[in-house]
Structure formats: C-alpha cells, structure tokens
Design a protein around this nucleic acid. Structure first.
Length: 868
DNA sequence: CTAGGGTTAG
C-alpha cells in the first residue's frame, strides 16, 4: 500500500454532486466511459463530467484513467467534498499506484483549499516526477506560502528527481516577487531560464509580471519588448504591469500599440487599462472602452470589467454613471459593491454610501477589509452616524484590525475626531509601514492642527529608511536591492500646508528643494501647494515665481494665486489674474473655468482692498457668466466686503435678501465683525442675537459683541455678554502667535511667560514702549475686555501674543532681517498701530499674518493702509 | 496530471 493513497478521513457521505441522475443512453464499454469523461473535462464541461463520473460509478468501478479527469473537474468547480470522495475511490478501486493520479490529487487539494491534504499526498509519493514537484510548489504559491514554495524549489533541485521545467519557473517567478531579497532571486530565476532554455510565452509573461511586482517596470518592459512571440496575454501582462505601477499614460500607449499590432483587447485588457483612465480622469477614453465592452460579446458581463468601469466613472466625478453600471452588473461581486461604495464615499455621497452598505449586508454579502476602509470616511463625515468607536469594535471583532488599509482609515477617522492620540497608537501598531501609512499619519497631524508634529514625522520617516520592513519596493538600478521609503508627492502636498500654516518659510524652502530634486515640483498639486506655502509665509514674489514656472496649472493653482494676492492686499492684481484666468488661462491657452472657490478668493481680495463696486459687480454676474449659484460663503464674503467698507446697513440688508435655503451663520458672523470695526452697536446686537441662537458655543461671537460694547463705553453690557459666555461654558480660544527661528517654530500665547526668553522679551517691550510714546503712540485700550485701570490695560496689550513674537524676532535676528509672524486670531487695532511704530523705530520690515490677511509693516506704515 | 495576464481601498 502506497502511503499517498491513504486517506486520513473516515468514509464520507456521498456528495450531492454524485447523486445526479445517470445518463440513460447506454455507454457500452469502460473505455468509452473514460473517453466521454475526459472529453467533457477537456472542454470545461465540468458539471457534465462529474455527472458522467457518477453514472460510470454505477456501471463499473473507475480506474486510473478516470481519476485524473474527474479530479480536474472537481478542482475546477472547487468541490472539496467530491475531491475527497474520488480520493476514497482511488484507495478503493485503484489498481497500481499511479504518480499521475497522485499529482492530480495534490493539484485538486491545492485548488480546493486543503493545503495540508495536498502536502500529505505529496509526502506519500514515491518516485516523484517533475509534475509532482510543480504541483506542490504551485500549491504553496496559491496559499501565498512564498518562502515555503522557494524552499521546495531548492529541495527539488537537490533531490535530482527531475529538472525544473517551464512550469517550475513560472511558480518560482511568482514566489520570488513576494519575498525579501526578491530582486536578487529574480535575477537568478531569469538567468536560469536563459541558461537552460526553459523558455516560452508562459515563462516570459511570468517573468514580466515578476519584475513588475518588484517595481522594476523598466526591466519588465524591456523583457516584453525583446520577446518575439507576444500573444494577447503578453500584451495584457505589460499593460497591467504599467497600470499597477502607476504608469498610467504608458498603459494607455501600450493599449494603442496592442491594437495596432492586430491583437483584440479582451476583458482582462479592459480591466487592466480602465484603472489608468480612472486615475488620469480620462473619462472620455473610459467611455470609449465602455462602448467597446458593450459592442463586443461577453465583455460587459465580465465582473472585473464592470467593477473597473464603476470605479472609473466614480473617480471621474460621475457617481451616477457609476451607479448605472453597478445596477447593470449581472453577478455582483464584493469588489463591485466595494467599488460603488468607495465611489460614493470619494464623492462625499455619504448617505448613499451608508445606505448601499446596509443593502450589501442585508443581501448577505460579506464585507471585507476594503469595504470597511471605504465606508469609514463616509461614517466619519455623516452626522447621522456618531458611534465611531462602535465601528472600531466591529472591525476588530471581524478580524480586520490589522489590515493596513483599515488601519489607515481608522487613523484618519480618529484624527478627524480630534483623537490624534488614538491615531498615533494605531500607527505604532502598523506592521510594515509603507508610504501611505506615513502619509495618513502626517495628514492626521495636519488635520488636527499639530503642524509641528507633521514636520517631525516627515523627518522621522526619512530617518527610518532601510529599517526592517518599512521599505518601499521601487524601480531601481541593476545591482541594487531596493530603494528605501521616501516622501512622495502626496507627502509633500500634506506637509506643505503645515509649513504654510506655521509660516515656516525655512522648512518650506527645504521641501521645495527636495521636490525639485525628486522631480516632484512639476506636479500640479505639489506646485499649487508650493505657491500657497510661499504666499502664506509672506513671500508673494516667490509664490509668483513658482506659479510662472509651473508647466501645467489647474483651477486650484489659479485660486491659490488669486487668494495670495488678495491676502497681501493686492486686489487690483488679483482681479487682473482672474481676468487672465478666464480669458487665456496661462500657458496652456486653455481657458480655465472659475469655480465656487475662485469667487471666494476674488471677493476676499476685493474685501481686503476695499473694492466694493468691483466685488458687487462680480457677485451679480457670477451666475450668468459661469453658472455659479452664490453659496453661503459667497454671501458671507459680500457682507464682509460691504461691512468692512463701512456700509454696515447695506450689508445687513443683503442678509435679508438671502434665499431661505442658504445658511446665514457665516454672513451674520461677518456682519458682527464689521460692526466691531465700525462700532455699530444696534446692528451688532441683531447679528449677535442670531449668532447666539445659531451657534451658542462659538466664543468669538461673544467676544466680538463684548468688544463692541466696551469700545462704545458700555461696560455693563460688555460684562453681561461675558457673563453669558461663561454661563454657556464657552471658552475663548487663546490668542497665539508664532515665528520660525532656525529649525524651530516658537509659539507665544497671550500673557504667556513660559518661553525661556520671556523675561527678556517683556523688558525689551517695555523699553520699546517708552520710545514708542516719544513717536506719539497712544495705547488704544478699547479691545481690552476687563474694566480695569489704564496702566494695567496697557500691560495687557503688551502681553498680546503678536508683540511677544515680534519682540522675539527682533532680539534673535540680525538687524535688517525681515520679521515674519503669524497669528491665529485677527490683529487688534492697538497692535496694528503699535507694530507700525515699532517697524519705524527699529527700522525693520515686519510681516504679520492673521487669520485673514497679511500686514506688511515698513518704516511706520502698513501695506493695508489701515484698511483692514 | 502541473503553468502566464485582471477589478475594488489610503
């Protein structure tokens, strides 16, 4: 008795598939039975083959010729029960031990998901041949046991049972693209095929895929090009290699070459090339592929094609089209559901996403890690859904807690909830952090306003280059193993807003240099972020230089620059850019259509420069010219524009004309700010009344109203508002200013004395104060809330965070250096006057950025000309 | 009797 024929299970019940009615035509002889069976298996009529086997079983005992065929069919339909039955028959009826039968058993068990059984049968084979080894090695690959598969490959070589064949090489190529040190093994495998002439389309295609998986796209391409017998699979291989390595343009080029070569794309081709259309947002091209799929037999029924189409439409902002495809998909797979869910979530159709998720679960589709990481962002944004920790529990319970995608989604979720500590904890547990793990964590910090943490992470990320598994597979030169993890364009786009926010010009310049060196500066998104960073660090000139040098610009790029000019008080220039954008669109000669944000930028620019008429004109024409319906933030800008220019009453009237479906909160808030500037107590009271009602928890409303009262000398009312604020348990955000010095950003809170130089700073401000008075400075104490004596008020003003930051800059930089300070709130009137005088006394340019705009102080004047 | 190419996510 040969051990491979032993079956470790007790006799199994007859599987249902063997109970089918036998064919009634009389099949006379045993050989005819076998012929019929084999022909059915060969023509992929597996169900029929299985019925035939059942019928045959009733007529005569099966033999070694019948087993391979029925086992192949069992494997094809993944029927493990049937496979085990046949194994039992092999034991019962098999005459002489046949290696071929055993090999087929190994293969069947592998395909039916019982790796242990496959291994048991393999171990029992005496006189193993090449097919035995190949089947076992392929089985291990199927179970993603890459190391084990390579171990068996070595065993095969040393056993001298058989020489590796092209089959062996295919598995070897597969395995070595998934292990550490794969590049070296890959070269060995490649060399082996050349040396031993183990060649053919199968091997070659496998090698192309192997190189692509290792990120060595150029090697993959070269191998493809050098191969003479390209068939459809070869073309599909190279196209998917490019697509999967983010070389989308090239993937489209190769599709074209394939067609020129006379090879007709099949479902696999489409499924490989559609992601390229999706990422490049080439919806026109994607639609052509959709038509091709509809016109050609069988393509649209392919679930891979359907899924890729759903994704393509959704990624091109056409979620409704995606839904139409989804609804037409005949056999919905989990991937199709996921694509639709992710598509909704990406377009922020959160309700639809959640509804679809519920539908998916109720139709008994089992959500996987992809599903959950797609739904999570929708849950976070969706107000109806607030039990986020509950979701986390659900995820852990279902065993998806260690999936990288899920972990990223969770990190993002907690960051958006303000629970950055939890994001950090999850980040700490991520197994092999890749670039996206890092990017997600960095984004989380930026979302939470922890900008310095984001920059620190950027450093940390580069420090752990080459460490353990935190390496990325990238295309590298011959002889190189792998290039370590390094920031990509997403990292830069994430971290640049952090620099912008911190006004960390030095760090921003460093990142700019890195971007240029890594060829990432050409990227529209990176370029736009650089323009924004320079503008927000006060360097409008550099922002403009970067803008002018960008090869491609989009709406966002233009919006950023218009916003930049507006913030720097250059309204005329901003409007000129707006005109240029809509008429010539820069170097591409394509006119760029303004969007909602463009108009926000334009109105803000008008507001900071007092260009009321221009702003009003653009407001009244935006619908007709560009089809943009004014939103609540547009109204808020307009109210700000009118109010700031002193037309408080007109601003109030504008609010009254707003359509009822547009939220008025922001508009009231703008109006209240205008009342603060122009001391309109009555209208201020109206605005405040609405705001206290609509947003009782926002501190700035109370503070503004209180300040309006105190500057009008209405101390009692001011105290009243303050009391009300206290009762509501609302706390004012503390004033905070910061300044970059060397590698650090120094922060100062109002009245704060925790800075190491605090004592020096206060002393310096005092001596400065004496000189300021000689220049005619009179403290304006109206913005000080407390009803205290004047001397104390003045001390409090000196404790304003921007003064501390400016003093720090003056004390720590050489004469003549420009001081750049940023602040989280608006600059108060007194600080504005004071800074002007300081700039004159110390003869320094001081650039002060507040929440809204820049103030360039020089020689006793401000760029805003007191219009602020 | 064993083999190559595909969809979804951050």
């Amino acid at each position: 008795m040969h051990s491979y024929l032993s079956l470790s299970q007790r006799p199994l019940p007859y599987p249902s598939s063997l109970q089918t009615e036998p064919d009634h035509r009389p099949p006379p002889s045993a050989t005819q039975w076998v012929d019929l069976l084999r022909s059915l298996t060969q023509s992929s009529s597996h169900r029929a083959a299985i019925s035939t086997y059942a019928a045959m079983l009733a007529a005569a005992p099966p033999d070694n010729f019948a087993f391979p065929a029925v086992l192949k069919s069992a494997a094809a339909v993944r029927d493990l029960g049937l496979g085990r039955q046949v194994h039992a028959h092999v034991l019962k009826f098999g005459h002489a031990p046949s290696v071929a039968v055993a090999n087929t058993l190994v293969d069947m068990y592998g395909k039916c998901g019982d790796a242990a059984a496959a291994r048991r049968v393999f171990d029992g084979i005496s006189g193993r041949d090449d097919v035995s080894w190949n089947s076992m090695i392929a089985t291990l690959c199927r179970f993603e046991e890459w190391e084990a598969s390579l171990r068996f490959l070595r065993l095969m070589l040393s056993s001298r049972d058989a020489e590796p064949t092209s089959f062996t090489l295919v598995s070897a190529a597969h395995a070595c693209s998934h292990v550490r040190g794969g590049s070296r093994l890959a070269r060995q495998v490649h060399a082996y095929t050349l040396r031993n002439g183990v060649w053919g389309t199968y091997t070659n295609n496998a090698l192309v895929t192997m190189y692509a998986r290792l990120g060595r796209v150029n090697d993959a391409k070269a191998l493809f090009e050098a191969f003479d017998d390209k068939d459809m699979v070869s073309w599909n291989t190279v196209i998917s290699s490019l697509s999967q390595n983010d070389r989308f343009e090239e993937a489209l080029v190769y599709l074209h070459l394939m067609i020129v070569d006379g090879v007709r794309p099949d479902g696999v081709t489409l499924a490989s090339v559609l992601p390229a259309c999706s990422h490049l947002e080439r919806v026109g091209f994607g639609r052509e592929i959709h038509c091709y799929a509809l016109r050609n037999e069988g393509l649209i029924e392919n679930s891979f094609v359907g899924t890729a189409l759903i994704d393509m439409y959704c990624n091109c902002k056409q979620a409704e089209k995606g839904r139409l495809v989804f609804d037409g998909v005949l056999r919905r797979t989990v991937a199709a559901w996921n694509a639709m869910l992710a598509g909704y979530a990406r377009n922020e159709f959160d309700d639809e996403a959640l509804r679809l998720f519920v539908e998916m679960v109720s139709e008994e589709f089992c959500p996987n890690a992809t599903t959950l990481s797609s739904v999570l962002p929708a849950c976070v944004r969706c107000e109806a859904f607030f039990d986020q920790e509950g979701i986390h529990g659900y995820i852990v319970k279902r065993g998806f807690g260690s999936d990288k995608y899920v972990q990223n989604a969770l990190m993002d979720m907690y960051a958006r909830m303000g629970r950055i500590e939890i994001s950090r904890m999850i980040f700490g547990r991520v197994d092999r952090r890749d670039i996206v793990s890092w990017n997600t964590m960095i984004t989380g910090c930026v979302v939470c306003g922890c900008h310095d943490d984001a920059l620190n992470l950027l450093h940390e990320m580069q420090r752990c280059q080459g460490e353990d598994g935190s390496e990325a597979f990238v295309d590298c030169e011959e002889g190189e193993e792998r290039i370590p993890l390094k920031p990509n364009s997403v990292t830069l786009m994430t971290v640049l807003p952090g620099c912008a926010s911190l006004a960390a010009l030095g760090k921003g310049k460093e990142i700019h240099a890195y971007a240029v060196k890594q060829m990432l500066a050409m990227d529209v998104a990176v370029g736009s972020a650089l323009v924004d960073m320079y503008a927000k660090c006060g360097c409008l000139r550099l922002a403009r230089i970067v803008f002018d040098q960008m090869p491609v610009r989009n709406v966002i790029t233009w919006n950023v620059l218009i916003m930049a000019y507006g913030m720097h008080g250059k309204g005329e220039e901003a409007l000129e850019l707006f005109r240029r954008m809509t008429t010539e669109g820069g170097s591409s000669r394509n006119v760029i259509r303004p969007n909602e944000v463009t108009y926000i930028a334009v109105f803000a620019a008008c507001s900071h420069s007092g260009m009321v008429d221009e702003g009003l004109h653009l407001f009244h024409t935006m619908k007709a010219r560009h089809g943009i319906e004014p939103r609540s933030d547009h109204y808020a800008c307009l109210v700000d524009l009118l109010g700031r220019s002193g037309q408080v009453k007109e601003a109030y009237e504008l609010i009254n004309t707003m359509p009822s479906n547009v939220s008025k909160v922001d508009a009231w808030s703008s109006l209240l700010g205008a009342c603060r500037i122009h001391q309109s107590v009555e209208i201020g009271e109206i605005a405040a009344k609405h705001l206290f009602d609509l947003e009782p928890n926002v501190a700035s409303h109370y503070v503004l109203m209180s300040n309006i009262y105190s500057s009008a000398g209405l101390w009692d009312q001011a105290m009243e508002v303050r009391k009300k604020m206290k009762e509501m348990g609302v706390r004012k955000e503390p004033g905070c200013s910061w300044i970059e010095h060397g590698d650090e950003v120094h922060k100062f809170l109002a009245g704060d004395s925790s800075h190491p130089q605090s004592k020096e700073l206060h002393e310096y401000l005092e001596t400065l104060s004496l000189r300021m008075r000689k220049e005619g400075y009179v403290p304006d104490t109206s913005c000080v809330l407390h009803n205290v004596d004047d001397e104390e008020k003045e001390t409090m003003l000196c404790g304003h965070s921007e003064r501390l930051a400016i003093a720090f800059g003056l004390l720590n930089t050489p004469p003549g250096t420009t001081i750049r300070v940023a602040k989280n709130l608006r600059v108060c009137n007194d600080c504005h006057v004071a800074t002007k005088i300081i700039s004159k006394i110390v003869d320094r340019a001081i650039i002060l950025r507040d929440v809204r705009r820049f103030h360039h102080f020089r020689n006793g004047t401000c760029s805003c000309g007191d219009y602020w």
